[in-house]
Design a protein around this nucleic acid. Sequence first.
DNA 1: TATTGTTATACTCTATAACTATA
DNA 2: TATAGTTATAGAGTATAACAATA
Lengths: 147, 147
Amino acid sequence: MVDEKLPDVLVSRLGYLLKHVQLKLSDAVALALSPFGIDGRELAVLSVLAAEYPLSQLEVAGRLRVDRTTMVALIDALEGKGLVERRRSPEDRRKNMVGLTAEGHERLLKADKARQEVDRVFLAPLGEGDAGRLVRDLQILLMAEQS
Amino acid sequence: MVDEKLPDVLVSRLGYLLKHVQLKLSDAVALALSPFGIDGRELAVLSVLAAEYPLSQLEVAGRLRVDRTTMVALIDALEGKGLVERRRSPEDRRKNMVGLTAEGHERLLKADKARQEVDRVFLAPLGEGDAGRLVRDLQILLMAEQS
DNA sequence: TATTGTTATACTCTATAACTATA
DNA sequence: TATAGTTATAGAGTATAACAATA
């Protein structure tokens, strides 16, 4: 990327800041996760499944705020890697219940540790207090009813 | 969107927070800018041109961190709306110097006022002190050398 | 040879519509 | 009829490669 100074007119814009900070973190996460053969979204799926197990595809999609059609390909990829498995729900045979495989659980632990370390290093320039407050503030903004 | 509670396992992830807060703001900005016939990126181009005038397409692209091939379509759209104009640089005829038209300048003022109001309302849940600190912290993270 | 703008192309992420199987 | 999963398709946004004009 070009080593160009950021114009003041942009660094005062919340939208520009959020977008580019997100991109920067996203690059760092992608790099850190590459040895584990998964990307950030796939890791998020594994994390959700580890917390609530098992969930239907639609439920996973709802948790992650992605479309159910997007979830199909996501689960396809994870199933192809042997990290999750689908099985029809006996109670409602329209539903695919998705669960972690043993390998999926193991991969999750290793990869999420790497992700946490990326977050930690990424936030380090703020100092501990401000880093915690940033996370809390982002949570508040995400939850806020009308913005 | 589904009115579903956010899982703890996601709201503690910096990547998830940044992505979805950014999306939420982006939606709000798009809504606020729609009466002005431009989107957030186009407004950013106008802002950069108002601050440094005129710039070549490549310089604008550098400021905004977008590819020069992306900039072609962006300038095409703005020129089509009569908000900017290209003219060949006399010094280097490879360069398209891009400048604001009078209408572009006027549109910028109105639209950016709307965007600032969106930012203000969006950050309101944090209180004034934390809102300012959030912006400052995002600037620090964006500038930080290695994260 | 290198750079600027351009076009063509492709890839990712996402969403909409329509299909199937189930309910 | 409505819902869950799937497929096909299309729209953003972005990037790479190749070309023309110019340096």
